[in-house]
Computed example of a mutant assay.
Amino acid sequence: MARSATYTDPAFQPIIMVSLFGAVLIVLGLVFVLIQLWVSVRDREQTKVPVGDPWNGRTLEWSIPSPPPEYNFALIPQVNDRDDFTMSKENGTAYPVAKKYEDIEMPANTALGMILCFAFTILSFALVWHIWWLALVSFLAVPTALIYYSFLLDTTKIIPAKQVEREHKAWLAEVANATPVTREDETKSVNTGLAALELSETAS
């Protein structure tokens, strides 16, 4: 059976036009995503905010560098308030230095996710087009990969304390050298990620 058809009945014309309009919207959406990606790459030096708090954020994700290190927090944050980062900024303790840095254990990089992604993509393609041998191979690839990776013992990596300390102190130096910016300058290149603490926000 053919997977495409030609509709000559005029009654289908409005439905086809609606479908065409939807397809055009989808294409435009993809085009704008690509434009946004291109502009972001083009202007990355002017718009980067390494300090990490360009909008005077209230929660912990704004208390680390941007982009964040793979371990996120050099020090495990101690949370005592709903808006703990805001409270610590008020108290002048938002960017502490550790007395002692420790090694951080992280999951090791793995290709399992990409393997499963490709296997399921090929499996879907093969099922749609009735390519049974390819469907069988891609289907068997999934449990094979899962079983193989389940036997791996080296699944973590250690980020040395010296590296954590070096990166954290370098970032703290950026924080110390950054100029706090007000709301009026948030969208300007002068904003390196350190928003000025405004009394109107802390009082709310």
Score class of each variant (00 low, 15 high):
Thr8Ala: 14
Asp9Cys: 11
Phe12His: 09
Gln13Trp: 12
Ile15Ala: 13
Ser19Gly: 10
Ser19Glu: 08
Phe21Trp: 13
Ala23Leu: 15
Leu25Thr: 04
Leu25Trp: 05
Ile26Met: 13
Ile26Thr: 09
Val27Leu: 14
Val27Trp: 11
Leu28His: 09
Gly29Asn: 10
Gly29Ser: 11
Gly29Tyr: 10
Leu30Phe: 15
Leu30His: 11
Leu30Arg: 11
Leu30Gly: 13
Val31Leu: 15
Phe32Met: 15
Val33Cys: 10
Val33Ser: 09
Ile35Glu: 00
Gln36Gly: 15
Val39Lys: 12
Arg42Lys: 12
Arg42Val: 08
Arg42Thr: 07
Pro50Glu: 00
Pro50Trp: 05
Val51Gln: 00
Gly52Phe: 06
Thr59Cys: 09
Thr59Ser: 08
Thr59Lys: 10
Glu61Gly: 09
Trp62Lys: 01
Trp62Thr: 01
Ile64Ser: 01
Pro67Cys: 02
Glu70Val: 08
Tyr71Glu: 02
Ala74Arg: 02
Ala74Leu: 06
Leu75Lys: 06
Pro77Trp: 03
Gln78His: 13
Gln78Val: 13
Gln78Trp: 08
Asp84Trp: 05
Thr86Phe: 12
Lys89Arg: 15
Asn91Leu: 15
Val97Gly: 01
Ala98Pro: 00
Lys99Gly: 15
Lys100Gly: 06
Tyr101Lys: 02
Asp103Met: 05
Met106Phe: 07
Ala108Pro: 04
Ala108Arg: 15
Ala111Gly: 07
Ala111Asp: 08
Gly113Val: 11
Gly113Thr: 09
Ile115Met: 11
Leu116Cys: 05
Phe118Glu: 10
Phe118Ser: 07
Ala119Asn: 04
Ala119Gln: 02
Thr121Trp: 08
Phe125Arg: 09
Phe125Glu: 09
Leu127Trp: 12
Leu127Met: 11
Val128Met: 13
Ile131Tyr: 15
Trp133Arg: 03
Leu134Ala: 07
Leu136Thr: 06
Val137Lys: 02
Ser138Cys: 05
Phe139Gly: 09
Phe139Leu: 15
Leu140Tyr: 07
Leu140Arg: 03
Ala141His: 02
Pro143His: 01
Ile147Met: 14
Ile147Gly: 05
Tyr148Cys: 05
Ser150Ile: 05
Ser150Gly: 01
Asp154Pro: 07
Ile159Ser: 00
Lys162Tyr: 08
Lys162Phe: 11
Val164Thr: 00
Lys169Tyr: 03
Lys169Ala: 02
Ala170Lys: 05
Trp171Tyr: 08
Leu172Ser: 03
Glu174Asn: 04
Ala178Ile: 01
Ala178Tyr: 03
Ala178Asn: 00
Pro180Trp: 03
Thr182Ile: 08
Asp185Thr: 08
Glu186Ser: 04
Thr187Val: 10
Lys188Arg: 12
Lys188Asn: 04
Lys188Phe: 12
Ser189Gly: 05
Ser189Tyr: 07
Thr192Ala: 08
Gly193Lys: 03
Leu194Thr: 00
Ala195Asn: 00
Ala196Lys: 15
Leu197His: 04
Ser200Lys: 13
Glu201Leu: 10
Thr202Tyr: 10
Ala203His: 08
Ser204Phe: 14
